[in-house]
Simulated assay, not measured.
Amino acid sequence: MIDRKDLGSWMDGSPAEEGYVKGSALGLPATGRGAVAPFWRRPLSLLADWGLCLLVSALLFSGDALANLALFVVMNVLFLSLFGATPGQFAVRVRVLPVRGRSPMVLRALVRTALMLLLLPAVVWNRDRQPLHDVVAGTATVTA
């Protein structure tokens, strides 16, 4: 008879290779500059960016919800394309780098931002600590 221990469980966590370095499949270093950014920096930078968009929207557009969203999209695409990081990412010292493919950063930033707005791709991660919106866009968020 098959026992539960034989099948494993989602409660056991994801399968992990002993000694696997996060980001190594992407060609990133294990530590230091250019390594995969720690998890806590991502939501912190997102909160800073969203707060900045809310502030600008309150000053210029009376806090209109659609203006908040439009400002967030424009800020992400513009700053990621020109500087490789949004203001919130600059503040917590992370940046977004292309890791595969040859598409221009503007297109990567647009795809990444559109998928981030859907929320689900932002909470599904792979073993390299790369959320789905980064996987699809061919980018990685690294320590600056």
Rank of each mutant, 00 (worst) to 15 (best):
R33I: 09
A37M: 09
F39T: 01
R41T: 03
R42P: 08
P43T: 06
S45L: 01
S45F: 03
S45G: 13
A48K: 01
W50C: 04
W50P: 07
S57T: 07
S57G: 14
A58C: 09
A58E: 15
L59T: 12
L59M: 09
F61C: 07
D64W: 02
A65D: 08
N68W: 04
V73D: 07
V74P: 05
M75H: 06
M75K: 04
N76M: 15
N76H: 14
V77D: 05
V77T: 09
F79Q: 04
S81H: 08
L82D: 01
L82S: 05
F83T: 13
F83K: 13
P87Q: 15
G88M: 14
Q89T: 06
Q89N: 03
F90H: 15
F90Q: 10
V92R: 00
V92W: 04
R93Q: 06
V94C: 07
V94Y: 00
V94N: 04
V96H: 06
V99G: 13
G101N: 15
R108I: 03
A109M: 03
L110A: 07
V111Q: 12
V111M: 10
T113D: 00
T113E: 03
L115S: 06
L117W: 11
L117K: 11
L118P: 15
L120K: 01
P121Y: 00
V123T: 08
W125Q: 00
W125E: 00
R129M: 14
Q130W: 09
L132M: 11
L132S: 04
D134I: 07
D134V: 10
